[in-house]
Design a protein around this nucleic acid. Structure first.
Lengths: 217, 217
DNA sequence: GTAACAATTTACTGTCGAGTATGATTTAGC
DNA sequence: GCTAAATCATACTCGACAGTAAATTGTTAC
């Protein structure tokens, strides 16, 4: 049993959360649902998926568990929504360079910078640490497909860079795996407010990959 | 609730496992303990830590739960032992080049090859996916220290490579993170018997990092 | 102002799984 | 053989937590 500290577990909601909109039962379903997702992301981020109960999430919002169920079907869906939120930011990163006229390598650098920011966000955890094993087969399949989309996007940029001469010819697949791995791993050690900013991290990683370890004559 | 398939959950032990030594109650404590650890590693690998019950592990061995508890204190220790097993292989990788006269870059390449093999092994999962969050504070601290040891080892090799001129001067810390991230990520997608062997993977990754993306004049 | 319904709570259920108490059955040592 | 220690099973306990039924309170549309 994980001896992870839980807040006092009286079922009563506590402090009104910063996420939860004020004004009692006023109707803004979309906002509140967003708040639930975000609170879940933060809790998963801190304690992990399996060590977070829905009571924890509810308490973080100053609300009770059935309220959470009012906005979401089950815990799994909560994880999925967090995942989707993070994914959307990475899609944005690709979209942002889609029309760019710059070289493949420059576009890749831009994507990596945004990618690092997404991974370092509160949703990054869910993207990186949401394992198939925690999910139902159907949902696992969906997530695999979405992850594959990112992988394909990276490979594509690399390929285009090779074609336009801005990237040295290389094994596209392995290179994409290396990039994704290095970036994703950020979620395992990054803590906000210490050292580099996420954007700086992305740039620094890109530099490592760009220059290579072997000395240049 | 994860709809992960479980084998029929009658408490009875089933097939005698390949891991568990034959011969009933014959006394070979060390061997049996090893078998328990290994069975745990395989189960964690397949279903994840939280989706693996000790009954699962026992059943995989053709034994009952109290038997598992006879060889190990609790589930957490099981995870820790798996972690240590994987770690030992990585330590071996560093030891193997400690006396080497070759360049820092070559020694780094050698370590990465072994590192990839360790990560791709059944214990790799535990090394990469054993989050602090699943562990008691004391054990989490121990594991953090051990992980840090690996990190320091990588940085050291890189530094030495820079000093002997075999590696282009770079940010040691970020480079080590990038290397570790890329390699660790293997555990998330590698499945034995498909594509490259782990050793080939390690070599391929090293090549990516060595040459760099930017075309060489 | 009030009917209709949206939002939330109180108070449950049921299950799963970690860990244990106890007793049975070997095996090793003499 | 006999005994003490080692090995293993049967049959539990107990808490945590996902999910739900039903009642309650506030809000909005009219």
């Amino acid at each position: 049993m994980p001896r992870s500290r839980r807040s006092a577990s009286d079922g009563r909601p506590e402090s009104p959360s910063a996420l939860w909109p004020p004004g009692g039962r006023r109707r803004n379903h979309a906002v509140k649902r967003e708040a639930v997702i975000r609170a879940a992301a933060q809790s998963f981020n801190e304690r992990g998926y399996h060590n977070t109960s829905l009571d924890d999430i509810a308490r973080a919002l100053g609300v009770t568990k059935p309220t959470v169920y009012y906005y979401v079907d089950n815990k799994e869906q909560l994880l999925f929504e967090c995942f989707r939120e993070g994914l959307e930011r990475i899609r944005d990163a690709f979209r942002a360079v889609a029309q760019d006229q710059s070289s493949g390598r420059e576009r890749l650098a831009s994507v990596l910078r945004d990618y690092a920011q997404a991974i370092a966000s509160e949703f990054g955890w869910c993207m990186v640490r949401a394992h198939d094993q925690d999910l139902s087969p159907q949902m696992a399949r969906q997530i695999r497909e979405l992850k594959s989309e990112i992988d394909q996007g990276l490979r594509r940029l690399i390929r285009e860079g090779v074609e336009d001469g801005s990237i040295e010819p290389c094994d596209t697949k392995i290179t994409a795996f290396a990039l994704a791995g290095a970036l994703n791993w950020i979620a395992h050690w990054y803590r906000p407010g210490q050292g580099m900013s996420p954007a700086e991290l992305g740039a620094a990683f890109m530099q490592v990959f760009e220059l290579g370890l072997r000395p240049r004559g």
